[in-house]
């Protein structure tokens, strides 16, 4: 099923052939997937070991009646309601420096969608020996300061999205608007990479 009738034939061909990796199915990953599927991308490889908890509902693409379910299971159900034909290769596992290169080896772009700072750098390290473009996020907690969230190209294949300073802390929680801005910018950057247009 083609959910985006506004694509050109050339764009549709690129989107149909693209395989996108998503590392983490939380506030970033679940929303990046929703955006990319609505845009017409249809093949994904993703991983997360977690279950849906009440604290996820402030920003993640899950629903109250899914609390306790595996994120891979719950998100498959939600995303198939957007496009029943989307190809989702979801791994219910912890991503490590060792398994990341293998799981994402056939991806054209990988989205870093972890929560913790050390996991974010771990993914960048794990994929540094490949030439796979990485779209990562850093600095998106709190409210306001929308214009501080931006996209930076770092080196030849890393794209960093966020304000680089607003980390989560007891005083600064992640919330739907800013996490959503960052996730939408990650999705839009993936599309720009696929289409070869300005990020």
């Amino acid at each position: 099923m083609n959910v985006n009738p506004y694509l050109s034939a050339a764009q549709q061909t690129i989107f149909t052939q693209a395989k996108i990796g998503i590392a983490g199915l939380g506030g970033l990953g679940s929303n990046v997937l929703s955006h990319l599927i609505r845009a017409g991308v249809s093949h994904f490889i993703a991983a997360d070991f977690d279950t849906v908890s009440p604290s996820n509902l402030n920003r993640q693409f899950f629903f109250a009646d899914q609390i306790g379910q595996k994120k891979t299971t719950a998100l498959t159900e939600n995303l198939r309601r957007i496009n029943p034909d989307v190809e989702l290769e979801f791994h219910d596992c912890l991503l490590t420096e060792e398994n990341i290169p293998e799981i994402f080896k056939n991806c054209h772009v990988v989205v870093e969608a972890f929560d913790k700072a050390d996991a974010k750098t771990m993914l960048i390290t794990a994929l540094s020996k490949t030439n796979i473009p990485i779209v990562a996020a850093s600095g998106l907690a709190g409210f306001g300061k929308s214009n501080d969230i931006r996209v930076r190209k770092v080196g030849s294949h890393l794209y960093l999205i966020g304000d680089l300073t607003s980390g989560i802390s007891p005083e600064l929680a992640p919330a739907s608007p800013r996490v959503g801005i960052a996730a939408a910018m990650q999705a839009n950057t993936v599309i720009a990479i696929l289409l070869g247009i300005q990020i």
Partner: peptide
């Protein structure tokens, strides 16, 4: 330098 801070 770019700092990676938590949140997602």
């Amino acid at each position: 330098l770019f700092s990676m801070v938590g949140g997602g």
